[in-house]
Amino acid sequence: MADIKKLEDLVIQVRRDILRQVHRVNSGHPGGSLGCTEFFVALYNEVMDRKDGFDMDGKGEDLFFLSNGHISPVFYSVLARAGYFPVNELNTFRHIDSRLQGHPTTHEGLPGIRVASGSLGQGISVAIGAAETKKLNQDSHLIYALCGDGELQEGQNWEAIMYAAGNKVDNLIVTVDYNGQQIDGSLEQVLPLGNLKAKFEAFGWEVLEVKEGNNLEAILSTLKTAKEKTGNGKPICILMHTVMGNGVDFMMHTHAWHGKAPNDEQLEDALSQNPETLGDY
């Protein structure tokens, strides 16, 4: 049984890390990062079966792929606090000569990252490839992936979604960060996805939905169900309804903070809403 209080403390600390990373370099993507904080914390600290340390091949452990690479601040914070690299390296986010590039990459050898992402729509394909290799290696561990909702406007996703169902890639759990926002506005304004659940189902996926995508217990319970449904001939999709900018009142329910950093006063306000728990880097 998960220690929810401990995870909640970590969530608050990760929010602080996100805000401080983007503020320090005055760039980056806080909105989507804050919206997925509970998911990342739950996944890396309760759900995934991970080995100590990092090797690229990741045999004998669960693997995670981030498709919407722009939410790197939450990924970096959770990886650092899970021990993949020193937490104080978060100070180098988006700086020159850093392993913490604006969008995640393997190029500088940052432990925890297995593929570059940022140019959207490519992560599900990569995750499917890794899932097929798990099967070839007779490794029963699972592949997790996260993609954005707006990102599903990229056609490659639908090639991948078709492939995974048609080829029974059932060791794969893809979560969609369903916050309804993208750079130019709401999904509905920019390009509606229609009935996303029906679309995934029509392609042959098992679809779970979590209405409270910023509630740790709801996420944990849905991921547990998803895990139980693996190995049954269908890939699994979780539509995770989140609030962009969650945990910082003035960043919530808007696309305004998709790719904008807070100024000094805004940072102070945001941090005061999330008092330090595990210690700042």
Binding site: K59, Q122, G123, S125, V126
Partner: peptide, 14 residues
């Protein structure tokens, strides 16, 4: 496009 992405993913695991 999916083929190239899958190929990249398949390298992970040797």
């Amino acid at each position: 496009a999916n083929m190239i992405g899958m190929a990249a993913g398949m390298t992970i695991g040797g």
